[in-house]
Design a protein around this nucleic acid. Sequence first.
DNA 1: GTTAAAAATTGATATAGGTTAAGTAATTGG
DNA 2: CCAATTACTTAACCTATATCAATTTTTAAC
Lengths: 243, 243
Amino acid sequence: MSNIAIHYTVSCANCGLQKICFANGLHDSDLGQLDELVDRKPSLLKGDMLFRAGEKFSSLFAIRAGAIKVFSYDQNNTEVIHGFYLPGDIVGMDSLAYTDYQFNAVALDVTTVCEIPYGQLTELANQVPNLHLQIFNLMSQEIVNNRFYTSLLTQKTADQRLAHFILMMSSKYKSRGYLHTKFRLNILHRDVANYLNLTPETVSRILAKFNKENIVSWKKKEISILDEARLRDFAGEDAVSCD
Amino acid sequence: MSNIAIHYTVSCANCGLQKICFANGLHDSDLGQLDELVDRKPSLLKGDMLFRAGEKFSSLFAIRAGAIKVFSYDQNNTEVIHGFYLPGDIVGMDSLAYTDYQFNAVALDVTTVCEIPYGQLTELANQVPNLHLQIFNLMSQEIVNNRFYTSLLTQKTADQRLAHFILMMSSKYKSRGYLHTKFRLNILHRDVANYLNLTPETVSRILAKFNKENIVSWKKKEISILDEARLRDFAGEDAVSCD
DNA sequence: GTTAAAAATTGATATAGGTTAAGTAATTGG
DNA sequence: CCAATTACTTAACCTATATCAATTTTTAAC
């Protein structure tokens, strides 16, 4: 893996993720103000913690590049994975009602984020009504996404869950303008299993099947969707849309 | 079941649920304004829909009495239950990023709600910064509750899930100042099973066990917690706190 | 590059909770 | 109040996926 720590300095106005980040729905004049309070942090390396549960809550983070895993520990100290966040996603909204972060967030890859100090954000929002609405919208979408995820866990078989997961990631890349049939996803199969409430063995067996039938190949962090139609058949009837 | 449709007219300032509703964190002067935009609707009867998925989103609802079930349908037209909402809870925040309600909400009992038109709420919030924060907080709590619920489904056995559910409901009643060891809960066992991703048969078997061992009795919508300590043992180590 | 550690694979076996079925109890609507 | 419907219970059996175990492959660290 490359270790180059690029320090992004592009402004919100020029950011390719503008449409999906907070900046969505703001006027040019307001964008400049948001831009000023955003702290563009140097890259996180794989395994670096963005924040830990119990640390003082201070900021939201917009992901610019890389991937973040959000998780907690259950009483047996096993990880409970709540989500994987990709460029354009916002991390930390779950903790905004609390004095401390409620979950852990770790970089799965070289990752760059914009840090948005919450205090300053709410101050700015008092002058820019659209920003309040934008935050409401993102949080409401997060709730709906969680509900969709619950349905996935409770209503779908192992095959369907994994097929959905792959389509979901593909759809995220597509909506960000990247190739969606072939992409790198630096997530352990073990973590995918955990997220889908399966064991690594089950994920491995299903991937072996998908591979044998030339539907999906997922080897060494590289996913290729070879037969999207059949993958959708496996996923079941619900459309995979995502933000 | 009683059919008396009480039309509540008490103001926010005098509402016993003040501490847990939007009114929390507002000054007396602001409370009056919130009070004016709240529409106190006549009671819903059991089975009445508060709103349906696909209807135009217009309002949030604060529950004053009764119980609301929020659910969607999966591709087989089976209900997916996302939550049960009791007095002091707010329903509808999930849909606020959308033009339509994203879920269905039905009364499980005679239920009274305060309707809070979203447009007017955001207008008022522009004058009352605390109100924005209050809405942020409620939404963030909803996200954290959903994550806790996911952990329950993925990490706990059937016994633990049901024990947790009973303790959760008990805790809600307790925090609202009601007796928490003996209360009426007008939720079908079938719906509890659905919510906990179990079958009615499994719930029935576990309740039979709890009953035989004098831990909990749940007959005809009446729950009695007979041995809270042992029920907590069944629930496992995580504390049941709830809002 | 080499090696140790971690992750993924594959097969055999086990089990929690689902499914089926057949009853009993509770609720609802006339 | 009575009949019909809907909800709940209990028991026997089954299955999807977990668990256990033994390799193989990949990754990370020197």
